[in-house]
Design a protein around this nucleic acid. Structure first.
Length: 220
DNA sequence: GCCAACGTTGGC
DNA sequence: GCCAACGTTGGC
């Protein structure tokens, strides 16, 4: 149930709902999109991603009197170690969740905390369905502009898989990213850096595998 | 349909 | 706490 990022609903949202289907993202801006996912695909089909990274804030931070903290330890502690990833209020992030398939893996990323970085791995165990919090007036993610017969926001269920053998700090990932950008390598276009604020991001298998391989390496 | 203003994210 | 980056809104 925890809202994973603070993404509140904009008070100024006066949405007609027209931006909400398909791959087109809310904004019309050409979005500095070094990765192709921002663009509308000419031949319809959205690219099929197989791996993901999802951000959540593991440390307490009160907003409207509500603590949105949710780290990987919180997920691990739940019954079935499973939870719904509610509270996403960004179209790009939502659209990625809608592409997620049962059984796919996602990194659990800790954001907005002392040590941001990747903490562990989870699995998608339920594909996108209606995020109920958009209709709950008392929920911090309530969206007055979303109509029950045409809900704007979706969520997926995720299940804890395991912690990484060691934590991968953002700072370390960034060093690799910069190296790879200069000389080539799997992390050269990683969304964590090219679309830094996106809370749900796709990873290529190469990115995913490379990051996993760091488990057996010394911290850079 | 452009774009300035506003609000949020999230690293530092 | 600061503030750069950038998505979203809404005036024109």
């Amino acid at each position: 149930m925890p809202p994973k990022t603070r993404a509140g609903v904009s008070k100024r949202a006066a949405n007609t709902g027209k931006e909400d289907d398909g791959e087109t993202v809310g904004g019309k801006r050409k979005a500095a999109a070094p990765v192709e996912f921002g663009k509308k695909q000419v031949n319809s089909e959205a690219p099929r991603y197989s791996h993901w990274l999802m951000k959540s804030e593991p440390e307490s931070r009160f907003e409207s009197g509500i603590d949105g903290k949710f780290g990987i330890e919180d997920l691990k502690a739940l019954p079935d170690q499973t939870d719904c990833w509610d509270g996403v209020r960004n179209y790009q992030a939502r659209n990625f969740m809608r592409q997620m398939k049962d059984g796919q893996l996602a990194f659990f990323y800790h954001s907005d905390c002392k040590e941001p970085g990747i903490a562990g791995i989870m699995k998608i165990v339920k594909e996108a369905y209606v995020d109920h919090t958009q209709f709950d007036k008392k929920d911090i993610h309530f969206d007055a502009n979303s109509e029950p017969d045409n809900p704007k926001w979706s969520m997926v269920d995720v299940q804890y898989q395991r912690m990484l053998k060691r934590f991968f700090p953002l700072s370390e990932l960034k060093k690799y990213h910069l190296q790879h950008r200069a000389k080539g390598g799997p992390l050269k276009d990683m969304a964590l850096f090219t679309s830094a604020r996106l809370s749900v991001q796709p990873l290529t298998p190469e990115e995913f595998d490379f990051i996993l391989s760091l488990e057996d390496k010394e911290p850079l």
